[in-house]
Design a protein around this nucleic acid. Structure first.
Lengths: 196, 196, 196, 196
DNA sequence: GAGTAACCGAGACGGTACGTCACGTCTTCTG
DNA sequence: CAGAAGACGTGACGTACCGTCTCGGTTACTC
């Protein structure tokens, strides 16, 4: 009979309101000052309702900032390694240009270092999508003989994302575009067979 | 006459004890659970004495983990770009292999995103040293005609440091060595003139 | 036509199970830690079923601890004031010797100070029974000329019950018997005509 | 050298403000709705400052309502048992006529049933004063041959206090005066030698 | 060698967030 | 409709850190 999950079902409007509120708050006041209390208030929802769905603030913000669906930039191979690498870096640039990502990322990283659930969420999100697509890009290049030297998808991803993150925090959030250009050039030289 | 700063001078043993205690605590319990209270207790010192020297916990830990003098690995140019780049990545590997760096880095980054003083400390430390040395390496390579394409010292630094940081947190702290190898290979291909 | 209360009738086993569970819980964990949730769990019943019958936790416990029928000790006049007063105090002693009464009474009193429905329940129970019987005792003594001086049934009741309650809470639950003896002696001297 | 309790001394104004605020709140909103948060707000003090002094709300309220100094009515023997007993009941009447006592008493009793520290506070307050004075009264009566039959100070105290408490909660707060009269008469008959 | 200014330890202070718990109500599905 | 399951808003709890402050008491320089 498939009892349909006994009990009163969760109100989906609560989920939406919370995630929107969290996203807005992170943009407006930053990660540290984004409180479960404040999220609840802005979403017009009780703190209880939030704790029922997410075990900690970090997980709420993570889901709010990386809505898992089409999380990254849907890097689809164009059949041209040079173009694909350019798209990769551009995707990261777009991602790190979103204000809520900039505001949330450092705090989320710090919490991830402590909270295994958040670390898991990161891997399930970033990895499952980006890594799979990145592997496709590299495989394509390898098959077409465009790949000058091999490199793991993980290294490629960490290199790009890490560079943006580090510049953002330790340097200046406004200098992301020059970084993207240098990074693109560097990756193409290193990875694309000159003859291609 | 340079009045010698009237009043009782600060006890230098306090500084040392605090920094040691902070370093140990970060290694043992992580950044988040390293509190000023615990640092003071372990150092056998009062909280007051700590706040007299550093304006906030993050600054204490920063100084404890990156002892400013000879902070990095003292990357000195060997007059060979390939060797210098290898040394650069190796230096980063050594740095991020220190347990206290691994434990403190994510938390410090998060605090730096909020606290301008900490951001300043980061730039004065990491940048002032590393960046200067890195520039020397690139300049040397450029002068000797070994440099295949130009790249800013900042981008190079952020790329390397960011990659280690990101892998550490979002991935697995134990896979740093493979990352270093791929990174080295990638940088050499991208930056060293093949004829060299 | 008096339709026999259309719809599914309430399951009487629920009532019994809830009251039993409440009585046991109060004895085992005390009034404060007796929650509706726990009562429901032990009774094998849903919280809904409880709230359908009683408007608040206090009312459940009240009914569980003072089962309204034959609530007190059924003080029936023996036609001898001295004996009746002795029986009165003894009845109170028996009542306050019941573990669930001891455990629940202070909490119920506190809630009664706030909740008018509970106050009402107290009066309908304790008063309606005890007061009526006590009045009969006093009337009998008065008619037989055994009553030395008049006193209201209410005062007599509050005096006895209050003394037990107070000693229990503020003093020691184990010293109830000596209290009963002194109380009996005191009441007889005060109320029974010496010639009788 | 008697270092005078190292550290910053507690601000006595905090104590006073908290106790006043607690007393007022109990009168205005009752015991149950008197929150540590509200006390702190009204006293213009942090919650922390309160928890530093008292381990729980109940202890704050207890001290606020029974200021220990001259807590009771300073029952001093007049050398006449009849008068002393009258004064005893009158003292209780005055005590239970204070609005904050009426409001707090039931809740305090309930908490005392659970919290040993509060029970201790009750005994140290009520007992240390009242019991000592009551014993003096009984001793005096006994020595002067005015005492008709012996009774313990504890029983006498619990009887009187309990009667007031019970009437207040289970009956009606306004019928305290008639209770006092009946109680006085009853005690005098029971305890004072008629020849006296 | 007397002042005095800054040190040191201890600990109180106001703030603020945390995550948990119980309350009593409401909503859905199943019998 | 009853009953079980469980979501919902409300609101208090006591704990923990933060960084500041206020004490009494201790050095070392300066005059």
């Amino acid at each position: 009979m498939k009892s349909g999950e006994a009990g009163r079902p969760r109100d989906p409007r609560v989920d939406a309101a919370v995630l929107t509120a969290a996203r807005e708050l992170v943009r407006e006041v930053g990660y540290a000052d984004t409180t479960v209390e404040k999220i609840a208030a802005r979403a017009g929802v009780s703190r209880t309702a939030i704790y029922r769905r997410w075990p900690a603030k970090a997980l709420v913000v993570h889901e709010a900032v990386f809505p898992s669906a089409s999380e990254q930039t849907h890097l689809e191979s164009r059949g041209d390694l040079r173009a694909d690498l350019t798209a990769l870096v551009h995707g990261a640039l777009v991602l790190f240009s979103r204000e809520e990502v900039r505001a949330a990322m450092p705090g989320l990283m710090a919490d991830a270092a402590v909270d295994a659930r958040l670390r898991r969420a990161f891997r399930d999100g970033m990895e499952a999508t980006a890594r799979r697509e990145l592997s496709a890009v590299l495989d394509g290049g390898r098959e077409r003989g465009e790949l000058r030297q091999d490199v793991s998808a993980g290294t490629l991803m960490h290199l790009v994302a890490g560079a943006f993150l580090f510049r953002m925090v330790a340097w200046a959030p406004e200098e992301l575009v020059p970084l993207a250009e240098e990074l693109t050039s560097l990756l193409i030289t290193a990875l694309v067979e000159p003859s291609a």
